[in-house]
Design a protein around this nucleic acid. Structure first.
Lengths: 169, 169
DNA sequence: AATTTATGTCAGCCATATTGACGTTTCTGC
DNA sequence: GCAGAAACGTCAATATGGCTGACATAAATT
């Protein structure tokens, strides 16, 4: 099988078919690692995303989480309730603003997130080995540049505050 | 906001929190480009995936598509029927094996796929500019190495047959 | 002739997303 | 202090895109 190159609009630059498809397959297998494990817990991808960000950014407000995940509070509500009921996450009332419910992972929650991140880390390590330390920085730069920076949420701000190592090329 | 590092299992290597999160946000925005455009057509991500692979690999069999997308034929059926009905895709009976329905994109279908790929290409080009040509090859190598290679489907075989350019570092 | 393969289809279920409406508590501005 | 806005929760209805199981047909294979 050979890949066809659909006619591009006249005068346009070449399309990045290769990267587009590599991203599709890479992301499919990347999230697949976690998906398989989550089945055993009766959780889905939505639960993972919530748990991940709450674990990584303790004290995240509900509104922050909505910004990051880009879903509605009704959608979040269902998933969050399950995680609260089953003891993976706890809520604490905000100190300054008592309307806020700050979210924290329990040890049980942290353990699950770490386990899932472990699976994904194995895949990432394997892939980074192929490109060396300098290549790893290039990959980070590339991924950062793929992300929209207008109107960043709190989590993205935190991520972009971390400087990338200077490229040594 | 600072990112917390949840306690890793004793003795384990560090987890790749940075890459894990960059992949999440990069992919979210990457598919977001197409999602917005698809709304105008009344299509979803599922339609895009089908159209994309049929356009890129003309003559794909239904069974091949099922392998690539990793969904059931019932799920595919609904989406595929819409695309056939609305004239984005046509079926032709296989020459050797008349049971097969080979799938081809119509000009209308190709145009839509090219438009969506154009949006995604703009984002990719912007990101690749940050890392230079050598960096671009590193990114390709990384993404390839993220993909499972056991039991590859026809499309993946085609992708992996294309050699990566030798790294010039 | 019997079986297997490739595909299509019917019926129903589940997870995750949506919009719209409404209620409570708490903070903020005047 | 009071009006209004903000942060959150929740009810109801709906859509999308997955799933399983069962069954049908045509064509290839044995």
């Amino acid at each position: 099988m050979r890949a066809a190159e659909p006619a591009a609009a006249a005068g346009s630059e070449p399309l990045r078919w290769d990267i587009i498809e590599l991203l599709f397959f890479a992301y499919r297998d990347f999230v697949g690692d976690a998906d398989h494990e989550l089945e055993a817990f009766g959780f889905g991808r939505a639960h993972h995303r919530v748990m991940h960000f709450v674990t990584r950014y303790p004290g995240l407000k509900v509104a922050d989480l909505l910004d990051v995940l880009r879903i509605t509070k009704q959608s979040l509500g269902r998933v969050l309730k399950q995680l609260l009921d089953e003891g993976y996450i706890v809520q604490k009332t905000g100190n300054n603003d008592r309307r806020q419910r700050l979210l924290f992972a329990t040890p049980k929650g942290e353990a699950l997130v770490a386990k899932l991140a472990g699976l994904q880390t194995r895949r990432i390590d394997r892939a980074l080995e192929q490109v060396g330390p300098a290549g790893a920085e290039k990959v980070r730069q590339f991924l950062r540049a793929m992300i929209d920076r207008d109107d960043p949420d709190k989590v993205l701000e935190a991520i972009f505050r971390t400087p990338v190592a200077a490229a040594k090329e």
